[in-house]
Amino acid sequence: MERVLTLLSFGPEGWGDNIAEGVLVTVSLALATLPLGLLVGFFIALGKRSNDRFLRLAANIYTTLFRGLPELLTLFLVFYGAQIGLQRLVHLFDPSANIEVNAFVAGMIALGVVFSSYASEVFLAAFRAIPQGQYEGSFAVGLSGLQTMRLIILPQLVRLALPGLSNLWLILLKDTALVSVIGLADILRQSGIAARVTKEAFLFFGIACLIYLVLAMLSSIVLHAIENWTRRSGASR
């Protein structure tokens, strides 16, 4: 027991500080991916709702592609693919240049792309739940298309999409574990190093699992609070 506590302490012979750094990396990666994924997902959903069939097709290709590929493969495609692509591009100007893609950015793009393709479906379902009369009413009082979206549709959309998006956030949090494979020092990689050095694999991977659980619980609390906040205006109905 004492040995376990020493191993988990924040001192020089403990791994607590390393794992805490890993938690920071995991959380910041997930938080950095979220706005990217939400924004892209929203625009993909708009594309899928479009009257124009070319735009719909383009948006649907995106979802089909990134919902069908394994997340790990998407990560490798982005990580190695961007490296090779950029390398070729730069070699046109400077043949001696060497490019390395930042693992954090690659992880952010790959996870963001996956997140947005799922988020677009959530937004689409939320859009469908808003009655046509809301648009008609808004045009009738003389709001422009952009104003309708900002003042009438978006506030309702947030409320309708939130449960689905909460789910996606929890999935995103778990998917960040994949970036440990391309060398980003997240929770799983740090505990893996600790496990290899100390030969206490079960302890450290168990701790990693527990940290993910705690993160999920904290997220649930925050998401619940946000959900209640969005319901304020609808409560009286």
Partner: peptide, 15 residues
């Protein structure tokens, strides 16, 4: 609530 990758590691390395 935990990543499948972490569970797999827990079984493969942890056990």
């Amino acid at each position: 609530g935990t990543p499948l990758l972490a569970q797999t590691f827990l079984v493969y390395y942890g056990l």
